[in-house]
């Protein structure tokens, strides 16, 4: 049920977002989801993609600091309250959310929310018990 996300450290300077994406594009690597966290000082680029292992090797050898994180992908009903229902389940279970972001899965037309939990196991158990659909790798890419 866990999705591997690549995180890439970005300096706060021009071109720092462009360069890693250029490296991936040159290798013909397709991205499924992307999000950027930024502070005043630096950014963290987060990528979800089928070829994550190859992309990681490519970025590491290019000199980027890369880390792989387990994410939980949740199918969100595309209607008012769709996300609220999920957050209520997580809140009731006491699952801390480190961060989250969403994207459309073009193939299925679904909305996927990716969550980074402090304790993924606890969150997954709560979501399963509430009958909320989590998406595996096959459903995402």
């Amino acid at each position: 049920m866990k999705i591997s996300q690549l995180s890439v450290f970005l300096e706060n300077r021009p071109h720092s977002l462009l360069e890693p994406l250029q490296a991936l594009a040159a290798a013909g690597i397709d991205l499924s989801g992307i999000a950027l966290a930024d502070s005043e000082q630096f950014g963290i680029l987060r990528l979800v993609l089928r070829d994550w292992a190859r992309a990681r090797g490519l970025l590491q050898s290019g000199g980027w600091a890369v880390t792989v994180t387990d994410m939980v992908a949740i199918h969100v009903e595309d209607q008012p309250g769709g996300l609220v229902r999920i957050l209520e389940v997580l809140a009731a279970a006491g699952a801390d959310i480190e961060y989250m972001y969403g994207f459309f899965v073009r193939r299925s037309g679904r909305v996927a929310m990716l969550f980074r939990f402090a304790r993924p196991e606890l969150a997954i158990a709560a979501l399963e018990a509430a009958g909320i659909t989590m998406l595996g790798e096959d459903a995402l890419y």
Binding site: S7, F42, R46, Q60, T67, T69, Y99
Partner: peptide, 10 residues
């Protein structure tokens, strides 16, 4: 930032 100290959270 070395890979050893890099974390995905801000």
């Amino acid at each position: 930032v070395t890979p050893e100290v890099f974390s995905d959270t801000v």
